[in-house]
Design a binder for these strands. Structure first.
Length: 214
DNA sequence: ACCCAGGGTCATA
DNA sequence: TATGACCATGGG
């Protein structure tokens, strides 16, 4: 798609979501819900420092301690609960290695059953932890394509996801790159310039008038 | 002193 | 089905 080429040409390839493990990526996906990634990094660092970045450690840690580790990432009580649910599921299923053999549709359905994992978090995990060709639709994606006049913006998640997946070849590296580029574009351009000089795409600041550039 | 961040759940109508 | 409240820290 033309939008992808412009983003890629302007912002370059992204080595995104560099987790040391599949599990770390899954944890990051939950912790970053409505939260800046810099805060998530601090929480993950706390888990590592406590040697608690494992399903067993998180599943068995007292709530107070787990919440304390997660504190920098915000919503720490909620997220402690969500990580426990995620870990309980992982353990119940026999670990990430076994889960990785499931077909994408089955794995997605399973993830959505886990308390605290919604469509976007599930797709983050499918794409970045399990390398499945799933297109992640986040707030930035909606905003960008809405401002480009290509969608209304209030479509349901599943509709947009299939819209993107139909328009593109099912390729996990491509989807990883695309989603990363959209996020990088948002961070790069917002609050700096009224328009991205490199890719000529509209900025993604939450409250900015739609510029009629495209 | 605001506004915002790589959402999701739950209670209401 | 569709809104709204709520969760909570840290950076700009």
């Amino acid at each position: 798609m033309a939008v992808y080429r412009r983003l890629h040409a302007a912002h370059g390839p992204q080595h995104w979501w560099p987790g040391d493990s599949t599990f770390e990526i899954m944890v990051g996906a939950v912790l970053t819900q409505n939260t800046a990634w810099t805060n998530v990094e601090k929480a993950i660092a706390n888990l590592k420092a406590a040697k608690a970045l494992s399903p067993a450690a998180i599943a068995t840690a007292p709530h107070r301690r787990l919440a304390a580790w997660l504190k920098p990432s915000g919503y720490f009580n909620i997220k402690a609960q969500r990580l426990r649910a995620l870990c309980a599921w992982l353990i119940r299923k026999g670990g990430a290695k076994r889960i990785a053999r499931l077909p994408t549709a089955v794995l997605r359905a399973e993830l959505l059953q886990v308390h605290g994992i919604g469509p976007e978090t599930a797709d983050d995990i499918l794409l970045y932890a399990f390398n499945r060709p799933v297109f992640v639709v986040d707030a930035y994606t909606r905003r960008l394509f809405q401002r480009l006049g290509l969608i209304r913006g209030d479509e349901k998640y599943e509709l947009l996801r299939q819209w993107f997946e139909t328009a593109l070849v099912a390729d996990a590296p491509l989807f990883s790159e695309y989603h990363a580029l959209i996020v990088v574009h948002a961070k790069d351009v917002c609050r700096k310039r009224p328009i991205c000089g490199a890719c000529k795409l509209v900025p993604l600041c939450p409250s900015r008038e739609i510029s009629k550039d495209s």
